[in-house]
Computed example of a mutant assay.
Amino acid sequence: MELISIIVPCYNEQEVLPLFYDEITKTMNKMRTDNPGLDFELLFINDGSKDSTLKLLRELSAKDECVRYISFSRNFGKEAGMFAGLENANGDYVVIMDADLQHPPEYIPEMYDYVKNKGYDCATTRRVNRKGESKIRSWFARKFYKIMNKISQTEIVDGAQDYRFMSRQMVDSILSMKEYNRFSKGIFSWVGFNTKYIEYENVERAAGTTAWSFWKLFLYSLDGITAFSTVPLALASILGIISCLISFIMIIFIIIKTLAFGEDVQGYPTIICAIFFIGGLQLFCMGILGQYLSKTYLESKRRPIYIVKETEKTPRNKYEEN
Rank of each mutant, 00 (worst) to 15 (best):
E110L: 12
S294H: 07
L245W: 05
Y69F: 13
E204S: 12
K318W: 13
G132F: 15
T258Q: 15
K63R: 08
W190I: 07
E15C: 06
M166K: 02
L42P: 06
N181R: 07
S61T: 04
M111I: 08
G37A: 12
Y11F: 07
L233R: 07
M177R: 10
S173H: 08
L283T: 15
V95R: 12
W139I: 14
E133L: 12
N35R: 06
G267L: 09
R303H: 01
K313S: 02
S229M: 05
Q14F: 11
G159K: 02
M28L: 03
G240K: 13
D22C: 08
Y69Q: 03
R303K: 13
P36C: 05
R164P: 07
L38R: 07
S294F: 15
A260N: 11
N322C: 13
E201W: 01
D113N: 03
A80F: 13
P18M: 00
I246E: 06
L54F: 05
S184G: 09
L222I: 02
T314I: 09
S213Y: 11
K131G: 14
G267N: 04
Y69I: 08
F261M: 05
I254P: 02
I238N: 11
V308D: 09
Q153F: 10
C244Q: 14
I187T: 14
I238H: 02
T270N: 06
Y319N: 06
K30E: 08
V265F: 11
A227D: 09
I24G: 00
M31R: 01
L54C: 10
